[in-house]
Amino acid sequence: MIRHLVLFKLNDGVDRDGDERVAAGAKAFEELGGLVPGLREWQCGWNTTARDIAYDFAINSLVDDREALEAYVGHPAHQAAAAQWREFATWVIADIEV
């Protein structure tokens, strides 16, 4: 099993509550869990702490293996959601075997 973690940081000047792109991007990821076969677990949401080192949004997902992870990454719904986020955020990922 592979735990796929992604942390998103909104770009400077991007307002989480006032930017329609951000709302659309969050919605795209919220819906993604039900669209991609092979996702065993899917969680995403906004950070609830206000610390300088904190990221703004996170995804926590679980897949069976590397093949399932590659299928998720290449899935058209994932590609479309990630493309939205590229407009207003940066991110880091970690894929860990569990």
Rank of each mutant, 00 (worst) to 15 (best):
Y55L: 13
G74R: 10
W91E: 10
G38C: 05
R3H: 10
V6F: 00
Q84M: 15
A83V: 05
G25M: 12
E31P: 00
I93P: 01
A54E: 06
K27G: 01
F57E: 02
E31C: 00
T90S: 15
V14P: 03
D52V: 11
W46P: 00
I2M: 09
D52H: 09
A68R: 09
D65A: 03
W91F: 15
R66I: 12
H4R: 10
D56G: 04
R21F: 01
Y55N: 13
G25L: 05
A28V: 08
D52P: 01
A89V: 05
W91A: 06
G33D: 01
G33T: 00
M1D: 13
G45F: 06
D12K: 12
G13N: 02
D64Q: 13
A24S: 12
R21P: 06
F29W: 09
A58R: 09
C44K: 05
I2L: 15
D56F: 02
M1Y: 04
V14Q: 07
P37V: 06
G38N: 08
M1E: 07
L7D: 00
P76Q: 07
A83N: 12
Q84Y: 00
A71Y: 01
D56I: 07
A80G: 08
A23K: 15
L39D: 08
A50H: 10
Q84F: 07
E87H: 05
D52E: 14
L39P: 01
V14K: 02
D12F: 00
Y55Q: 12
A94E: 12
V63L: 13
E97F: 10
V73Q: 15
A82I: 12
Q79M: 08
Y55K: 11
A28D: 04
Q43V: 07
E97S: 11
R51T: 13
F57H: 02
H4S: 04
H75L: 09
A83Y: 00
S61V: 03
H4M: 13
A82H: 05
E87M: 10
G34A: 10
G34C: 07
A77V: 04
R66P: 07
W42R: 11
M1A: 14
L7A: 14
W46D: 05
K9C: 04
W42Y: 14
D64V: 13
V73K: 15
E31M: 11
D95Q: 02
P37F: 07
W91H: 15
V6P: 01
L7Y: 07
I93R: 14
A50T: 14
R86Q: 13
